[in-house]
Design a protein around this nucleic acid. Structure first.
Lengths: 229, 229
DNA sequence: AAAAAACTTGATCAAACGGTCAAGAATCGT
DNA sequence: ACGATTCTTGACCGTTTGATCAAGTTTTTT
């Protein structure tokens, strides 16, 4: 019985603690989402904690309860974005067909630009202003990532599967092109005479980028576009 | 004699006025240069008039004598940058060979990224944050520019001089790739394991971009790279 | 030479902002 | 049930910043 009670108690408190954790995680997530949109719109300096609090729907003091400083909040927003960055490119492996791998990567990056343009803009802003918070990430994780992927590409080239190109600049090309449709969306929309970019714009951009990149690497477009999961 | 005196006076005053204008233009140019670097580093919100004044070497109050407000100064910095933007691409004309025209354009844009990275960053920052100051430019001048150039490209395609590609997305591709080496220089340098980008990096990037773009358009690289003026 | 115009600059101000605090409300552990 | 912990919030504070001003200096005009 004491065991039962203890179990009951333990069960109750565990559930309660679980609920509190979920609730805490939930409000933190809401703050982070609001912060991402404000940082994307205004940059780090232009963003105000008051605006982030307002979009979250909590008083400013409450926001500072969950995130000590604005910089702290900004770092955590960036953290989530960096995980997105390295999360793509899992198909770039020696045993995969290069045309398949590259078109898959391009499609995934373009999809990210379409679905998470705010994240892309926060990232871009951070880099443009000298990457004060993420220079370690760039020099360590990202550089390693590129080194590994470049080895794969070089392997394809050595095996005669594609034309010789500089693998690193190839990645820069794919990054630049896909991110430009998130970061510079207003410019592209203006030139296209639209108020905002449409799904078909991203689709066309991704397809043409894949066509030109693959062609430039001496590869054939896969029959299916966008490539299957 | 009165004529001579008058001439002398007029001469003196004209020269004096000329000197004053030159002097005024000179200090304004120094302020604009300092402002460009501060806006590039910190964005519009992050930039302070105190820092701009400090880099110019004048008291803050003096800066406000020449430029009424920070926004005013920012607009004039942008103005100069927009003129750079439209100043390239003069070789994209119906009668020019497409391979020649495109490789020339790519080289010119890459050269701009190398020589005016601050300008590129100020521009990028403005666009990322919604282009509050230059949406008119994007919708009018830039859109017209692209419309005209796209017609030229479409003409080349119709004449069978190059493979059919979407001309607008082709320009977006060139812009994205060249500007990325200015805007994201710290990221690219980090991935390449350098402290900063070297001339040879820009050179390699430009050459590979031209190779891939031209190949993608079914064109041959010109014998000479970078192309002659 | 003297009045007018243009320029310089230290001091100052009001607004905005990041962050704190204390007091209270809600929830949790036992 | 009740003390302890966690959370909420309006009020408040020190700093930063864009901008102004007034007093003075230099240059220009006549």
């Amino acid at each position: 019985m004491s065991v039962a009670i203890t179990q009951h108690k333990t069960g109750r408190s565990t559930v309660a603690k679980g609920i509190r954790q979920i609730s805490r995680a939930s409000i933190e997530a809401r703050i982070l989402a609001a912060a991402e949109s404000v940082f994307a719109e205004s940059g780090f300096s232009g963003a105000t904690t008051a605006e982030i609090a307002k979009r979250t729907g909590v008083p400013k003091a409450n926001l500072h309860y969950y995130f000590k400083t604005k910089e702290d909040l900004y770092r955590q927003v960036l953290q989530g974005i960096l995980e997105l960055w390295l999360g793509t490119g899992d198909q770039i492996l020696p045993e995969i067909d290069p045309a398949q791998a590259l078109s898959h990567y391009i499609a995934a990056k373009m999809e990210l630009a379409r679905q998470r343009p705010l994240a892309s803009r926060v990232f871009a802003n951070e880099i443009i202003h000298g990457a004060p918070q993420i220079s370690d990430f760039l020099q360590d994780e990202l550089r390693d990532w590129v080194d590994r992927k470049a080895e794969v590409v070089d392997g394809w080239i050595a095996a005669g599967k594609m034309k010789p190109v500089d693998a690193r600049h190839l990645f820069f090309m794919i990054w630049a092109n896909t991110q430009t449709y998130a970061d510079f969306a207003v410019q592209i929309a203006a030139v296209l005479g639209r108020s905002q970019l449409l799904p078909e714009d991203y689709d066309k951009a991704g397809r043409q980028l894949a066509e030109i990149v693959l062609q430039g690497c001496g590869l054939k477009m896969p029959a299916q576009w966008p490539p299957a999961e």
